[in-house]
Write a protein that binds this DNA or RNA. Structure first.
Length: 810
DNA sequence: TCATACCCCATTTTT
DNA sequence: TGGGGTATGA
């Protein structure tokens, strides 16, 4: 037809050219779904659909950004609305705030905000938390909101004990939120869905305006989202949804698989298109994925196929324990980089839980392999940043009680828990926001004279800040930091923490403000900034521009792809997780999780499990996951670990050779985990299923890891060191990713080089002498006496910013 | 009011 | 093993 449909397969073109009427696109992994969606938008525009009639809803900012970028290539500069569900609702709610009892400048509570609000509500409701933890209550309320259950109707429903408790907290929580002119994440959907339900004229208006609605990842919608989409597609049922039931992994957050399974019932005239051809993976990988997912019952049958050429078999590999797994994988990555023309960015390591990335981190760091962990400590979650943000929130919305509580004694001004509690009771009794209560401190008899003075001075500080609310963001933040003497506060309170730099974070925050001003010269309001910040997430910051190995959970991996993938700890109780094993539906979700992981891989995949795994301190025997037995062996190589190593392993696991520190190797990285590395490197590159060589004595020695590292092309090794602090945040709000390897540059002195008596230099404390060394590996700790002021400090060598001046051991 | 010590508890977490 | 919340003393 034209350029837009030219390069599409028949199935894809079928979906792209269906403009009017409901459309269901069942899109298997790697089937070019985004391509279809973006081309469809371009096609519609070509057909004369006006851009503002289209809204494309996604779940993540990342997905929305990608879509926007690609649509822009096909149809430049068209004001099609593309963004997340939550942002969409947030924007609509600004217009219709009064309909649901909010003011237009309402605040969006993030997770920790809602948590504190929840605690306060639990207290105010006077329920006991002995039968239901605050988390359980919060989750029950969240689920209720996702299912559009009002506080009133929740009370009528009889349920479990925790639900009964939650039902009592819910109305209180909700009332407090409204009083604070705030919403939590669930409310964005909940309020908007109710708004549509209860105001037919608003519903009709939006239905008419947004004639073409598209929803991505439809399998992950919950009832509230379903209701929203449904309500806007009554008069103009041109709703196009894409999704894959087999990739639904957010059931625990309220996603309802029935939304997609029943779509054809909801919209009788639906056109259904199946995208089953996979353009991503090798047939081997796809076969493994396909066999696995066939074990699920609640799904829409799908024939996955690919025309890609055959690839290597999928490897299923056993390790003795988690440390061996980590080391072997790091070695394997190093080896593949040398032999397989691979770069760090080609690799991803997936796991079920964040806790499992730790040993991998060590192993990668030791080899100088650059890596990034998606979901590290998030910029906007850091204390300093949250403090400043809380001030901004309070300036924008004086009713923001959570912000007030955070800020009223930060920096400390002797307004402690007692005073705060009294303010709170007064506010509760008068049903006023806490800032208002603070203004009326004089009326609160229980407050001491001193407290009243302190509170008054805080209020006057607030009023001064508030005057700057309409200034540029940069000016406001500068003024804020200045007026609150925040930097001085940080300097005085920061205890030596090696891995964070609060003052730097303040600078970065300022840069983010400057950047926001620059990007939004006209409409850059404080409110817009806060909304922006509230609705960006941690995983959005995954950057593929970094040439690094990526570590992440299976959940975070959805929607991504990598040439080479390791899936670790495929063990019983981990995957499937023991808390999901009782229930069939949950078990199927766990299987989908593995399916998602497998289908991320383009050309190479290894699944692994260990015989033993140490978890939270103790070592447990691990059993391979039941899912592994469901995989077809024809497309796999199964490699077992050497059984005869058990004795040896145990002897070293707990009994670290004392002589370790003394081993004089050219720069040995001294990590307990290292002991396997050389042997594993041999086995896994060449001898797939080959002879099992028992480890020789030499192999057991802490052989230099540098021989793995030294063969890695310089260019990779240099990366983390060459740019120790790449633009971490200033460039864009969405780029707040922090990688551990940025903080731990790889060119540091090997830990073994430090001796008692060595002279070192610390950026803050100056020169000093090591007086004592304890611990090993990442816990290797040095006690250092500093010469200038005779102070003695202890540091973890792996983290401290130490410089070795003189290694000699007098 | 604030700092420290201990005690408890641990999936996943698009927004 | 480690983070976060609470009890305790200065």
């Amino acid at each position: 037809m034209d350029a837009i449909t030219q390069n599409l397969t028949p199935a894809q073109a079928d979906a792209v050219t269906h403009v009017d009427g409901p459309l269901l696109i069942i899109a298997g992994p790697g089937s070019g779904k985004t391509r279809v969606v973006t081309h469809r938008i371009a096609y519609m525009l070509n057909q004369g659909v006006r851009p503002w009639q289209i809204a494309a809803l996604t779940f993540t900012n990342k997905a929305a950004d990608e879509m926007r970028m690609r649509v822009n290539l096909l149809a430049p500069n068209q004001p099609v609305w593309m963004g997340t569900f939550h942002r969409f609702c947030a924007q609509q709610l600004r217009r219709y705030a009064s309909f649901v009892g909010l003011a237009e400048n309402y605040s969006i509570y993030d997770m920790s905000d809602s948590r504190s609000a929840m605690k306060r509500a639990i207290q105010a409701a006077g329920v006991s938390t002995s039968h239901a933890t605050p988390e359980q209550i919060a989750s029950a309320i969240s689920k209720a909101k996702n299912r559009l259950i009002t506080p009133e109707s929740m009370q009528q429903q009889s349920g479990r004990a925790s639900d009964t408790v939650a039902a009592r907290v819910y109305p209180v929580y909700q009332e407090q939120l409204l009083l604070a002119n705030a919403v939590d994440f669930d409310d964005l959907l909940y309020h908007f869905a109710r708004l549509l339900r209860e105001n037919p004229e608003v519903r009709g208006e939006l239905d008419a305006k947004l004639k073409y609605i598209m929803v991505d990842e439809y399998q992950d919608t919950n009832l509230a989202q379903y209701a929203i989409v449904r309500a806007m597609s009554v008069d103009h049922p041109n709703l196009a949804v894409t999704g894959d039931p087999d990739q639904s992994i957010y059931g625990w957050r309220g996603a309802d698989l029935n939304n997609i399974l029943d779509f054809e019932k909801d919209y009788p005239n639906v056109k259904t298109v199946r995208l089953e051809q996979n353009y991503r993976s090798t047939p081997n990988i796809l076969a493994v994925a396909d066999q696995l997912i066939r074990h699920n019952r609640r799904r829409k049958a799908k024939e996955l196929y690919t025309e890609n050429p055959d690839g290597e078999n999928v490897i299923l590999r056993q390790y003795q324990d988690g440390y061996e797994e980590a080391d072997a994988i790091a070695d394997e990555i190093a080896a593949q980089m040398i032999t397989g023309n691979a770069e760090p960015r080609d690799f991803a390591i997936f796991c079920r839980m964040n806790a499992l990335t730790r040993s991998l981190e060590h192993a990668l760091r030791n080899r100088g392999l650059p890596y990034q962990i998606v979901n590290g400590v998030e910029f906007y979650q850091r204390k300093e940043v949250k403090d400043l943000l809380a001030y901004l929130h309070l300036i924008n919305n004086p009713s923001h009680d959570v912000a007030l509580q955070r800020v009223i004694n930060t920096p400390t001004r002797s307004i402690g828990a007692t005073t705060l509690g009294r303010l709170q009771s007064f506010a509760d009794a008068e049903r006023i926001p806490m800032l208002e209560a603070a203004r009326r401190a004089d009326e609160i008899d229980t407050l001491s004279k001193r407290s009243k003075t302190m509170v008054r001075s805080f209020v006057s500080l607030y009023d001064r800040l508030r005057k700057k609310a309409t200034a540029s963001l940069e000016e406001l933040v500068r003024y804020l930091v200045e007026e609150t003497k925040y930097i001085a506060f940080l300097e005085r309170t920061t205890v030596e923490k090696e891995d964070s730099n609060p003052i730097e974070n303040v600078d970065e925050f300022l840069s983010a403000a400057v950047e926001f001003d620059r990007m939004n010269p006209e409409d850059g309001s404080l409110e817009a900034f806060l909304e922006q910040v509230a609705l960006v997430s941690d995983t959005d910051k995954f950057e593929d521009s970094n040439n690094r190995v990526t570590l992440m959970t299976l959940h975070a991996a959805k929607g991504l792809e990598f040439p080479r993938v390791f899936l670790i700890a495929v063990e019983d109780d981990l995957l499937p997780h023991y808390r999901s094993k009782q229930d069939d539906q949950q078990l199927e979700e766990e299987r989908r999780l593995l399916f998602v992981g497998i289908t991320r891989a383009k050309q190479w995949l290894q699944l692994s499990y260990a015989k033993r795994r140490s978890m939270r301190g103790d070592i447990r025997v691990a059993i391979p996951s039941m899912f592994l037995s469901e995989l077809p062996r024809a497309d796999m190589n199964v490699i077992e670990s050497h059984a005869d190593r058990d004795f040896f392993d145990e002897s070293v696991d707990d009994d670290y050779p004392e002589s370790w520190d003394l081993v004089q190797e050219p720069a040995p990285e001294e990590e307990a985990e290292q002991e396997y590395s050389s042997e594993t490197a041999v086995t896994n590159t060449s001898s797939i299923g080959g002879p099992k060589t028992p480890p020789s004595t030499v192999d057991r020695l802490p052989k230099t890891t540098s021989d793995a590292a030294s063969v890695i092309p310089e260019v990779y090794l240099d990366e983390p060191a060459a740019k120790p602090k790449p633009k971490r945040n200033s460039a864009a709000l969405a780029s707040a990713l922090t990688t551990a390897s940025e903080m731990l540059s790889s060119d540091r002195v090997p830990l073994g080089a430090y001796r008692e008596g060595s002279t070192v230099r610390h950026p803050e404390y100056g020169e000093g002498t090591i007086t004592e060394l304890t611990g090993r590996g990442p816990k290797r700790t040095a006690k250092i006496r500093f010469s200038d002021n005779e102070s003695e400090q202890t540091f973890r060598l792996a983290f401290a910013k130490l410089e070795l001046v003189d290694a000699s051991n007098p």
